[in-house]
Every structure is written in structure tokens, then in C-alpha cells.
């Protein structure tokens, strides 16, 4: 079969207006179905004719998936809220600025107007080989083209690789983990609420997926508890150009300081592994210390322990180290 790209093949489009209908469709078509949110990842796959679902279920008409609501001490964000909604929501800006900051660094304003929070956290990796339609592990084959003696793997993983060395590209995912968000999933097994951290999986669990979503599942909302409200946040994303570019490495952290000491902290890196990498060891070490340059530097060293660089991505090691340091000390020296 000759390969042709850039032309979307036919599929059946469903535009349910209730979650119930959407779930029923997901159940009916199972693996042959595709939840369609903003389409910025989806359309890429469709137009290249690499992923060919029979049934595309457009979630944009499902009212239950929209809107940002205050709940208890935190907020609940419908999965179909756009990144612009998230970025500009006053409550999120004031209480959970980490998330609005992260959302504001995604791609371009146009993409943020269209892309959704649910889609952003559920998006597939951007490994060029996989995106090129090569039959690698992640595509169901038995080879990783990005980790051979001659591969180009500048954007690939330092940690948690297992056969597949791709990274999670999302900017909002690590921020949500740092905020201890809960992901609400509806599916065949009813409603499930999982910690943000547990939403993401590594290839050692399932090499063809980035998240725990099963074919019948829909991510309905993301709840941010009040736990980290108003904490000291830090988000930084390093990229080759200042717009329209995925992170080479990003850091998201939430820190509570009391009496000059770090009382509690959550710190998460992305684009260094197949899922956002929460730095548990670093968090433990930092508790009770003061947020200084030296403490940050030591944390940076600890953060990078156990890295396994590929041919072209060793630069991510010092980058990661420095970003951890910056997250602790803040930008000003």
C-alpha cells in the first residue's frame, strides 16, 4: 500500500450532546472509537492516515464537559475547557497560578483557543519517528527507531524509558500533578477518580498508551483541591523558540514556606520521561530546608540521579538540574 499523508480518510462522525450518549458511543465502538476534543493532536494523526478510527466522537457538544466551577476550596475544570479558558480564568490565576502559567506557555494563542485541557493531558507523544508513521513499539511494532546507534533523539527521554524512549509533551500535566489534581474518568466501570500522577503511565505498563484511559473511557473533569491554593509556584519551560514549540524540559513546582523553611513541596519535570516525572526524593530532601540557591543546587543534583541519556539528549541533564534549582530559589539570584 503506497503511503500518502496530509489527507484525512473517511470516518463516521458522531456529535453527542450528552455525556451518556458519548459514553454509549465509546462503549459501542471501543477500540475503533476516538474521542475528539480540540483536534490538535487528533487531526495530526487523521490527516496522516496513521490512526484510522471508524468512529470519531466529537465531545464539543457535551455540555457536562465544559465550564470551570468552584468546588469546596478548589476548582473543577471540565475536560473540554480550552487552554485559553484555563489560562485566563481569574480564580485559577489567583489561586493556582501555576496552571494558568503552564497553559499560557502552550504552543500559540490559536492552539490554546482550540486545544482543551482534557486533550492536552491526554495527548500522545511527539516522537518524530512515531509521528512519521514508523512501525515502532508504540505503534504496535517491535523496534524503537529513536534508540539505535544512529537515531536522532534530541527530544527524547532520560528517565523511565522502557524500549520506547519518547517523552510526554504536555505543559499542563506536570502543573496539575504539582497541584495534586484529581482526574475524573467515566467509563465502562463507572466513575473513577485518580490522582493526576496516576493518570500517566510508562511504556513498561503499556507501550502503546500514555495514560490509563481505556478505549471506553472519557476524562470528564479535573479537580484541583484547595491543598496548594496560593502556594509559591514556579513554572518554566525551555524551548527552542518562544512560541509554537514543545518543551525541551519543563519544571512545575508548588512550594509552601513557613518560618523561612520549606514546609511542603511538590515538584514535577516534563519532557524528560514518558510521563511527567514527580521528584519524590527531591521533595523529601527539601522539606524543612530553606529555599536558597545552594539547597536548590543540591536538589538539582539529586533530581538528575539515575538518568540514562541517549546520543543527543545529554544536554537535558544540566538543564533539568538548573531548572530544579531555579524552581527552588526563584528566578532572582
Amino acid at each position: 500500500m503506497a503511503v500518502i499523508r496530509d489527507t484525512i480518510p473517511a470516518f463516521e462522525l458522531f456529535q453527542p450532546t450528552s455525556l451518556e450518549d458519548a459514553l454509549a458511543l465509546k462503549r459501542r465502538y471501543g477500540k475503533a472509537s476516538w474521542a475528539y476534543a480540540g483536534g490538535l493532536d487528533s487531526l495530526d494523526w487523521f490527516k496522516d492516515r496513521i490512526k484510522r478510527p471508524d468512529a470519531v466522537i466529537d465531545l464539543s457538544g457535551v455540555a457536562e464537559l465544559r465550564g470551570i466551577r468552584d468546588v469546596d476550596d478548589g476548582v473543577e475544570i471540565g475536560a473540554m475547557s480550552t487552554l485559553t479558558d484555563v489560562e485566563t480564568h481569574a480564580g485559577i490565576q489567583s489561586d493556582f497560578g501555576l496552571l494558568s502559567d503552564a497553559a499560557s506557555k502552550v504552543a500559540t494563542p490559536q492552539i490554546r483557543n482550540q486545544g482543551t485541557l482534557g486533550g492536552n493531558v491526554s495527548q500522545d507523544t511527539r516522537c518524530s519517528y512515531y509521528r512519521g508513521g514508523w512501525p515502532c513499539y508504540r505503534a504496535g511494532g517491535n523496534i524503537c527507531y529513536a534508540d539505535t546507534p544512529t537515531s536522532i533523539n534530541r527530544e527524547h527521554a532520560l528517565f523511565e524509558a522502557d524500549r520506547c524512549v519518547a517523552v510526554n509533551p504536555s505543559d499542563t500535566a506536570p502543573a496539575l500533578i504539582a497541584l495534586d489534581a484529581k482526574f475524573v474518568i467515566q467509563g465502562t466501570g463507572g466513575e473513577k477518580v485518580v490522582d493526576a500522577e496516576d493518570y500517566f503511565i510508562t511504556p513498561s505498563t503499556d507501550i502503546t498508551r500514555m495514560t490509563i484511559l481505556e478505549p471506553g473511557d472519557i476524562l470528564t473533569s479535573i479537580r484541583i483541591p484547595g491543598t496548594w491554593k496560593g502556594a509559591q509556584f514556579y513554572f518554566e519551560k525551555v524551548r527552542d523558540r518562544q512560541a509554537w514549540d514543545f518543551a525541551l524540559v519543563s519544571v512545575s513546582s508548588a512550594m509552601k514556606i513557613s518560618g523561612g523553611k520549606i514546609e511542603d513541596i511538590r515538584i514535577v519535570m516534563n519532557a524528560v520521561g514518558p510521563r511527567p516525572l514527580r521528584l519524590h526524593d527531591v521533595e523529601r530532601q527539601l522539606k524543612g530546608q530553606s529555599a536558597t540557591e545552594d539547597v536548590g543546587a543540591a536538589a538539582g543534583e539529586l533530581a538528575t540521579l539515575g538518568n540514562r541519556p541517549l546520543q543527543h539528549n545529554a544536554y537535558k541533564i544540566p538543564l533539568m538540574r538548573n531548572l530544579v534549582k531555579r524552581a527552588i530559589r526563584g528566578l532572582e539570584v
Binding site: 500559540t108 518524530s128 519517528y129 512519521g132 527507531y145 539505535t148 544512529t150 537515531s151 536522532i152 527552542d240 523558540r241 518562544q242 512560541a243 509554537w244 514549540d245
Partner: peptide, 25 residues
Amino acid sequence: WVYDPKWGVPFTQRLYNAKPPSILD
């Protein structure tokens, strides 16, 4: 430009991976 040397196939044919400068640059 990025090519996989084993297969002779380029990876920078889309604007988002070819990375011409954006207005913020």
C-alpha cells in the same frame, strides 16, 4: 534540517518541527 541517517528520511517538514522563528523570537 534533521534526517535519520539510516533511512535517509527527514523529520523537519512540518512548520512546527522545522521551527522558523515566531514573532516572540
